[in-house]
Design a protein around this nucleic acid. Structure first.
Lengths: 118, 118
DNA sequence: TATTTGGTTAAGCATATACCTAAGTAATAC
DNA sequence: GTATTACTTAGGTATATGCTTAACCAAATA
């Protein structure tokens, strides 16, 4: 295991758990206290807190305590970093298909006019 | 840990490792044999194969063996499933901000005309 | 002031992950 | 037919992850 953990590692790792995604789904509809995020999950409160910690470490969630209540908010910019990585892969992929298409068209045209020497 | 592992779990988990992302980055530029994917990585070939297995299990990569060479291809549709989840969260978030904005505007207008009884 | 509520910390446990080396197998090259 | 190449399998280890219960603290509430 590499011990140089990048932003993207933390980000995708945070998204890889259904409990954490459920929390984000709830938070994308508005801020919520810890207990509300934890209530629907099939686990103890400390376990839910741990998931919340992972989300915060990934920059996906911010939280602040007022009185004895900690209120959590989603941080959508962190999500967009993950989206950008995925998008970049798609762009490269499509670019490659374009080049492949052009190459095939070239072959076709050359075959049409005269035999290629390749 | 829940032992009901979903597509998204596998997908995001697969993306959460730099070695696996490096493989996908290479594959988004075109198919490659196992050894070529493994060569740049700071680990043994069996370790790299294990990563490849994770990518295949997530549906992100397909591979086929011809002779003694296994050639791998990226499967971009799997990536788009992850992208859709992220996008859905953004949509919800923006929708929420819109409603909040409208609510604030309503408050403003009400304050403009007559005092609210709230 | 005593109790409940909301969160936090600590300690421990089971399983999963990420690696490794060594020992295969099967296809190709010599 | 032997050596090399390209993977594959097996077995093992260290660390990380996901969970638990028990105990704790501080802010409300009765």
């Amino acid at each position: 295991m590499l011990n140089q953990i990048s932003d993207l590692d933390r980000l995708f790792h945070a998204l890889a758990d259904p409990a954490r995604r459920a929390m984000l789904e709830r938070l994308s509809r508005g801020p919520a206290p810890v207990s509300e995020l934890a209530r629907p999950l099939p686990m103890s409160l400390p376990a839910a807190m741990q998931h919340l910690g992972v989300l915060e470490a990934a920059g996906l969630v911010r939280s602040a305590k007022v009185g004895r209540v900690r209120t959590c908010t989603i941080e959508p910019r962190a999500l967009s970093q993950a989206e950008r990585w995925i998008n970049a892969r798609r762009i490269e992929w499509e670019h490659r298909l374009d080049r492949l298409g052009e190459y095939l068209k070239t072959l076709e045209n050359e075959g049409d006019g005269n035999g290629s020497d390749d």
